[in-house]
Structures are given as structure tokens and as C-alpha cells.
């Protein structure tokens, strides 16, 4: 563990808050003018997944947790668990599906991603910002309203639905933003 000043908190780091591990999901530094500087944060409990808001004094000490992120590949689903493999050592790591939040639909075989470890226990899964998935179901485009950048739901290989432009057809691969679930573009090549 390392001690840091709350004013330096940043999104993505892990800290000890009320003696429990939390991930910082939002951190905004404020110098409010009428008082000393503060840092407003949103913290996600590693244990429960619940989010709390807390305002730190910017000069107060916070314990940063030494987490390390290892690159792993998705292997398969096993009931409520997800199994990942270390591509160098072939070690398998089992992670509860709940840690993926609502992002299980972005997992395809051998998808490379980072698992976040604290004391050899997985406490988080970091997806790449973008994934490329193949479209397996899409209605034919209907002519008509083309003014408001129309979208239609298409189904991709993992079974989830994404809103994509009308011209997207079955068999094409599309790029999806994993943090918003939005269609970003057509994957070429």
C-alpha cells in the first residue's frame, strides 16, 4: 500500500475506504472558493459492487491499494462464472460473472483484456475500449426517414443487440464502444 493525498485521486485507482477496497470511478478536484480544496469522488465497492459518493479534503491521506493488472484471454462461461486464461502460462482464472457488470456480451473467444488483482484475487475486469463483433441478425433496411441518422437493432455473435445504422448487413463486423454500448463504425478488413 502507498499513501497518497486525496487531491491526487484519479479514476481507475483502487483505495482503502472505511477499511474496505474501493475502485475510484470518478474524481473531481474542486477549489470551491469559499473553503479549502476538496476532491469529490464516486467509489465502487470491490466486495459488493455498490457505489458511494464521498468528498475528501484534498490534503487528507488516502491508502492506495497495490493492484496489478494482468493481460488474460476469455475462455468460456461456466455457469455463473467466467473462465479466463493467461496466454503465457496457460493458467486458468475463474471470475464471478457479476464482476463483468453488464459487459458479458462483449466477450468473444480469445478476447484479450486485463484482470485486476489484489492479493492474488481478481477484483475487476477491464475491457478494451472497443471490441469488434460480427453481425448475425439484421433486418433489411427500410427506406424512409433518413434525416435523423436512423438506427436499427442488430444482433451480434454474442447474442446482444446493438443499435447500428440502416446499411449494416448480416456478416459484417462492427466496432462497439464497451463503456457506452454504442456503435462506433464498420470494421474493415
Amino acid at each position: 500500500m502507498a499513501t497518497m493525498k486525496a487531491g491526487n485521486l484519479q479514476k481507475g485507482i483502487f483505495i482503502l475506504y472505511k477499511n474496505e477496497p474501493y475502485e475510484v470511478t470518478k474524481a473531481e478536484f474542486y477549489a470551491p472558493g469559499k473553503g479549502s480544496a476538496i476532491c469529490r469522488t464516486k467509489l465502487k465497492s470491490v466486495k459488493t459492487g455498490n457505489t458511494v459518493e464521498f468528498t475528501f479534503k484534498s490534503n487528507e491521506n488516502v491508502e492506495e491499494l497495490d493492484v496489478n493488472a494482468r493481460e488474460m484471454q476469455f475462455s468460456y462461461f461456466d455457469g455463473d462464472d467466467v473462465v479466463f486464461m493467461d496466454p503465457r502460462t496457460f493458467d486458468l482464472v475463474t471470475v464471478p460473472r457479476s464482476l463483468l457488470e453488464d459487459k458479458a456480451g462483449y466477450l468473444i473467444s480469445e478476447q484479450a483484456m486485463y484482470l485486476v488483482f489484489l492479493d492474488e484475487k481478481v477484483i475487476g475486469v477491464r475491457f478494451p475500449q472497443k471490441v469488434i463483433l460480427k453481425v448475425i441478425k439484421a433486418e433489411e433496411a427500410v427506406a424512409g426517414d433518413t434525416v435523423n441518422a436512423p438506427k436499427k437493432p442488430v444482433t451480434v455473435e454474442t447474442g446482444i443487440e446493438v443499435h447500428a445504422p440502416l446499411f449494416i448487413k448480416v456478416g459484417e463486423s462492427i466496432i462497439i464502444d464497451t463503456s457506452t454500448g454504442e456503435y462506433l463504425g464498420r470494421a474493415t478488413g
Binding site: S36, R40, F56, K57
Partner: peptide, 21 residues
């Protein structure tokens, strides 16, 4: 209440921290 307090912590700092939280 569990707020971090050190020897340098002032009334103004905890007043604002309680107000914000």
C-alpha cells in the same frame, strides 16, 4: 464519525467536509 483527522485538520476543513458529505 470516521473522517480522517490529523494534527493539522482545521474546523473549516471538517465543517466543509460534513457539509459536502
Amino acid at each position: 464519525k470516521g473522517y480522517a483527522i490529523s494534527s493539522g485538520t482545521t474546523w473549516e476543513q471538517v465543517y466543509n467536509q460534513i457539509l459536502f458529505n
